[in-house]
C-alpha cells in the first residue's frame, strides 16, 4: 500500500500552521498522530496535496489546570491522557476512555485532537468530552473560536471546525472533588477494536454532599454523532444518590430513547439499544454508588 506523492510541512509554530492551512485551502490536511489519516492516505480515502504536521509546535500537547479549567492541548496522545495524574484525579472518565482506545501502539501515536477532528461517531474520547461539558478552541488566521463539544459534531466525519482552522485545545470546567465518572464501551474483542456502543456518565454532588448537583450523560456509536441525554440527566440531578439510584431503569430507558442506532456489520440496531440500556444502568450504579460513599459525612 503506497501513498500518492504529496507535500509535507512541519509547522514550527501555530501561526505558521494556520497560515499554511489558510493558503492551501481544502487541499491541505492537518497531520497529528496519523493513525486515522495515514490509513486513509493508504486506502486513498483521503487525497490532500499537502500535510501540515503539528508535531513540532511547542506546548500544543500541554495538559494543565488553570483558573478552574482543565486544558488539554490537541496533540496530547491517548497514552498520556490515560496516565496523566491530574486527569486521573479530576476527570478519570477521560482516562478510562483514552486507555480503551486501540492498542498501546495506537495510543502512543493517536491524539485527542485527531480523535475529535476525525469525528467518528464511535470515537471513544467524544462521549466523555460531551459529558464533561467540554469546549474546543480552534485557531485560524483571524483568531480563535470556541465551540462547545455538544455543538461541534454534525455527522460522521463532519464537524463545525471553521475552514482553515485547526483544533488547538480542549477545555472543560474542573470537576469538584465529590464527582465521579464512568465510561463503558462494547467491542467484539478486548483490544484494537473500535466501539460498537459507548456510554459516558459523569456526575457531581453539591457542596454539602447531599444531592447530585450536576450530571452529564452521553452516548457514542449509536447515532450519526455522539449525543448528550438530558432526559437521563434530569432523572439524577436534584436528588440524593440513593434516590437517583432508584431511577436506574428509567435512566437506561431515557438513553435508549436518545439513541438512533443502525444495523451494521458490527451489530444490529436492536442489540445496540440493549447494550445502551445495560451500560447506562451499570454506569449509573457505579457512579451513584461512588457518590453515595463520597457524600457520607466523614
Amino acid at each position: 500500500m503506497r501513498i500518492t506523492p504529496l507535500e509535507y510541512v512541519t509547522a514550527d509554530n501555530l501561526s505558521q500552521a494556520v497560515e499554511l492551512l489558510d493558503s492551501a485551502g481544502p487541499q491541505a490536511a492537518v497531520l497529528a498522530g496519523g493513525t486515522d489519516l495515514v490509513l486513509n492516505l493508504k486506502k486513498k480515502r483521503a487525497c490532500p496535496c499537502i500535510l501540515v504536521s503539528l508535531q513540532a509546535i511547542d506546548g500544543i500537547d500541554r495538559i494543565c489546570l488553570e483558573n478552574g479549567m482543565i486544558r488539554i492541548g490537541a496533540m496530547a496522545t491517548h497514552d498520556r491522557l490515560a496516565r496523566h495524574p491530574l486527569l486521573r484525579e479530576k476527570a478519570d472518565i477521560l482516562c478510562q476512555a483514552a486507555g480503551l482506545i486501540g492498542s498501546w501502539q495506537i495510543r502512543n501515536a493517536g491524539t485527542i485532537g485527531g480523535n475529535i477532528c476525525n469525528a467518528s461517531p464511535a470515537g471513544d474520547a467524544l462521549p466523555p468530552l460531551l459529558a464533561l461539558d467540554a469546549a474546543f478552541v480552534t485557531a485560524g488566521t483571524v483568531g480563535e473560536t470556541v465551540i462547545s463539544a455538544r455543538n461541534f459534531f454534525t455527522g460522521p466525519g463532519q464537524t463545525r471546525l471553521p475552514s482553515g482552522h485547526l483544533l488547538k485545545e480542549i477545555r472543560f470546567p474542573c470537576p469538584p472533588a465529590n464527582a465521579a465518572g464512568c465510561y463503558m464501551k462494547l467491542r467484539r474483542r478486548k483490544a484494537v477494536d473500535i466501539s460498537i456502543a459507548g456510554v459516558a456518565f459523569q456526575a457531581a454532588l453539591n457542596e454539602e454532599g447531599t444531592q447530585v448537583a450536576s450530571a452529564g450523560i452521553a452516548l457514542g456509536g449509536v447515532a450519526p454523532t455522539p449525543v448528550r441525554v438530558p432526559g437521563a440527566e434530569d432523572l439524577i440531578t436534584g436528588r440524593s444518590p440513593k434516590e437517583a439510584l432508584e431511577n436506574a431503569r428509567a435512566i437506561g430507558a431515557a438513553c435508549v430513547a436518545a439513541a438512533s442506532p443502525i444495523d451494521d456489520l458490527r451489530a444490529s440496531a436492536d442489540y445496540k439499544r440493549t447494550i445502551v440500556n445495560v451500560f447506562a444502568q451499570r454506569c449509573a450504579r457505579h457512579v451513584l454508588t461512588t457518590l453515595k460513599e463520597k457524600g457520607k459525612p466523614q
Binding site: I3, Y8, L31, G34, T35, Q55, I106, N108, A109
Partner: peptide, 10 residues
C-alpha cells in the same frame, strides 16, 4: 508504535 502507520518524516 506501528511503523506501518507513520510517515517517515513523523
Amino acid at each position: 508504535v506501528h511503523a506501518c502507520l507513520l510517515l517517515a518524516h513523523q
